[in-house]
Design a protein around this nucleic acid. Structure first.
Lengths: 194, 194
DNA sequence: CGCCCTTCTTAACCTATCTTAAGTATCCTG
DNA sequence: CAGGATACTTAAGATAGGTTAAGAAGGGCG
């Protein structure tokens, strides 16, 4: 298993000793995936957190009308944002799907619990991950409330040109909180004025 | 300083020993407030996290058009959701304002850093607080995207009747992501059909 | 008690975004 | 490389929610 990405992600936040590194790597499960594959199905038991080791995934929610809402994308080096797999609860409401071919590293819930108990470094790491996650979600909410769809699209393509290239437009529309048709209209307009 | 609420909040997630409890209480600062008082101003240095010991506060963001967006309310027993005071960063973009008379407990950023270093229990506590915070923010985003303003208002009054009673309507409108005028229209309609 | 200031309501009109529908391009698979 | 499915585009009509403006209702302070 190639473990550079996840180790460097940890080392951005905490310094693990050799024992801790081995402990972490020993519980990770490599899970290759193909484009379009559903990795976690909403309503199923939340068994693990997913780290993108290669390729792109997305986490999304299907509401009671059957509409999907993309919560976030995760490219190589990022955790999927379904963190139900980290809490002692039976099911997750979110789906996680592969958007390209790639590989996820699965961190099982029980292993998370063991890691957290065995060392304050792991507590610290996940504290920081969730703290940043909470801040990011807040910013996303604010952005959704206070800017137009066109502005959100422009800032998305500026911030994540790589995702734009890899991911289907309908998912980007969903991430932006609009319909694919309306995104198409925005793109048409931008293409014409640019 | 009355410390029952904050100690019981900690004990929901971790078990602190006597030393840890003393350590925590020794760094908290009681800060009584009056209705309408601005406790933290956006753009200012983020000096602490705020725990509501009595009364209600809210955290909100003022966008570039001058419109306010309420991120969350905090009643007695809750942390305000501006957590910039917990990260080593200079300023917060959010305001925190008192909605009623009451008292906040301030936990200074430096003290947080000390607590986190001194005991894994504190790491664990904040890990859980942020984990839950991230989940809550995700759910809020999903709810904003997938339900109508009327539905959101109905579920708000069902979930937080006490906040409804204490807090001005314009802030509830902002929390729901709509204008006060539109909330008024919804209320009128509900009153007529009920 | 009365006045001013803020909040809440009502109503007419406006607009960003959605819905529906049809056409076109693209992608897998056989 | 052909055919069906899926994704993207375009456009017309619909609507949730915003904007503006004016009046009614509270609520704190002299």
């Amino acid at each position: 298993m190639v473990s550079d990405l996840i180790l460097s992600n940890f080392s951005e936040h905490v310094q693990l000793n050799e024992t801790e590194k081995e402990q972490l790597l020993s519980v990770l499960i490599a899970r290759p995936f193909k484009r379009g594959e559903l990795l976690v199905k909403g309503g199923d038991p939340a068994k693990y957190m997913l780290f993108a080791n290669a390729g792109y995934m997305m986490t999304y929610y299907t509401d009671s009308n059957g509409s999907d809402h993309v919560i976030s994308f995760a490219g190589a080096g990022w955790w999927a944002s379904d963190i139900y797999g980290s809490v002692s609860q039976q099911t997750t409401p979110y789906h996680t799907k592969a958007l390209t071919d790639g590989e996820a590293l699965l961190l099982p819930r029980l292993s998370i619990a063991h890691l957290l108990q065995s060392s304050a470094s792991f507590e610290r790491y996940f504290r920081i991950v969730f703290q940043k996650g909470m801040l990011r979600q807040q910013r996303r909410y604010i952005e959704a409330c206070s800017t137009s769809a066109e502005e959100r699209y422009r800032s998305f393509i500026a911030a994540y040109p790589d995702i734009l290239a890899e991911v289907q437009q309908k998912y980007i529309a969903s991430y932006l909180g609009i319909t694919p048709e309306f995104l198409s209209k925005i793109r048409g307009k931008l293409a014409r004025t640019a």
